[in-house]
Design a protein around this nucleic acid. Sequence first.
RNA 1: GUGAGAUUAGCUCAGUUGGUUAGAGCACUGGUUUGUGGUGCCGGGGGUCGCGGGUUCGAAUCCCGUAUCUCACCCCA
Length: 403
Amino acid sequence: MIKSLRGMNDILSEDYKRFTYFINTATKVAQRYGFHFIETPLLEETALFKRSVGESSDIVGKEMYQFIDKGQNDVCLRPEGTAGVVRAFIQKKLDKAGGAHRFFYHGSMFRYERPQKGRLRQFHQFGVESFGVNSVYEDVTMIMMVSDILKELGIGYRLQLNSLGDNNCMPDYRNKLVKFVKECEDDICEDCVRRLDTNPIRVLDCKNDKCQTIYDGAPKLLNNLCDSCDDDFSSLKKILQNNGIEYEIDTNLVRGLDYYSKTAFEFVSDNIGSQSAIAGGGRYDKLVEFLDGRPTPAVGFAIGIERLMELIVMPETSRDGYYIGAMDEEAVDLVMSLAHKKRKTDKVTIDYKAKNFKNHIKAADKICAKYFCIIGSNEMKDGNMIIKDLQNKTEIIIKQEEF
RNA sequence: GUGAGAUUAGCUCAGUUGGUUAGAGCACUGGUUUGUGGUGCCGGGGGUCGCGGGUUCGAAUCCCGUAUCUCACCCCA
C-alpha cells in the first residue's frame, strides 16, 4: 500500500469541517479589518528564503524542501508565508505606489522536520501582512485581529509581548549579550554555545533551567532599547490596555526569523503540548528594502492552523437537507427523479435500495437530515408524498409535482 | 539530526509463562408482517497481528533490522 509521506496528512471528514470553519472565520475577520486576499506560489527561488528568513535560522539551514528543477533553477517549497508576499509586493511595484497595502493569505507551508504534536512537514498557516504603515497602532491592529479570530473560535490564549529593537539599538544589545554569555560559556548548555555563533539572541529562550538561571543576570533587551523603540513599545502597551487586551511582557521572547524588528508577539495556548505557540508575528520594517524594494515599514502575523484545530469550539450542527427513501423496488426510479429535482436547491440523500419504513427513518436520522420523505405503494398510486420534519416532529402531505 | 514509547478488524482496545480455527465494544451490513427516528430483537461480512529476517516442533507473543505513528529535544506556526 502506498502511504502518504511522513508528516503529510490528509484532511477530511470532521477535520475538514474544522479546517474550513477556521479559514472562513479568519477570512471574515481579516476582511472586516479591510485586508485583501493574496495567493502566492508554493514554489519560490531558494535565494528568496535565504535572504529573508536568514541563513542562520534552522528553517533555511536544514528544514527546507530544496531542489534543482528541470530548468536548473534552485527552488524551494515555501517554509513560511511572509517572504513570498513581500516578493509579490515588490514585484507588483506596490512599494513604489505608496500608501497602505494590506493582505491576508492561507495555504500550505513545508518544513523538513521530525513531526510531533502540532508540527507537520506540510502544515497550514493563515497569515496577514500590512505594508506602508509605520504607526504602532497598526501593530495593535494585528494583535486585535488575532485576538478576534481566536475569540470567535472559542480559543483561550495568553499574549506575550516583547520589542526586538531596531538597527539602531539591537546590534549594541547583541554585543552586550554576547559579551555576558561568553563570560559564562563553560556553564551553559551545548546548544547555547552553538547559538552564540549562529544566533546569539536565541540563547534567551533556551529551555535549559541552568542556562535560564544564568541568564537571569544578563542584560535585558527591553532595558537597552533606543528612545524611538522604547516610545513605541510604551504606546503599544498603552493602546492594548485602553482596549482591554491583556498581555504579558516576556523579555526573552525572540523570533526565529531574521527579519523581525521592534514589536514581537506570540499567542500561546497551555493546552496543546510543547509546541504551544499558536500565532506569532511582529514588525519587519527592513525586509522590503532588504529584498530590493523601496524602504517600506511592514508588520504581520501567522497562525498555525494545525496547532489550534483541536482547540476550536465548533458551533452546534443543525439538521439539514432531505432524505428520500423507497419502500418498493418500483419506487426507486421515482425517488431518483425527485432527488434530482430537489438537488437544484437543497441537499438530498437517497438510498438506491427499497427498505421498510423503520429502516429508512433510522437512516435519515443517522445522517442528520431535516426532512424525511418516503415513497411506497400508496404514494405510487395517489401521487402524494409525506414530508416529515425530523426536528419539529411535524409532517405534511403534498403532491409530488409540488416537491 | 537526537532520545523514549507504540503498531492486533473501519475505529477504540483485549489477547495469560510461546501452544488448536486471534477476540470484544462501536461502526458497517442483512432480516425482523409496507408506515413513524437517537438506546428493540436475531443474524452476517471483515484481520498477511506494520513490513522483512531470525530462534523454535510451534511466534501476535522472544531476538535483530526497517517503516510509520506518538511524545520530547533541536527549531518553529
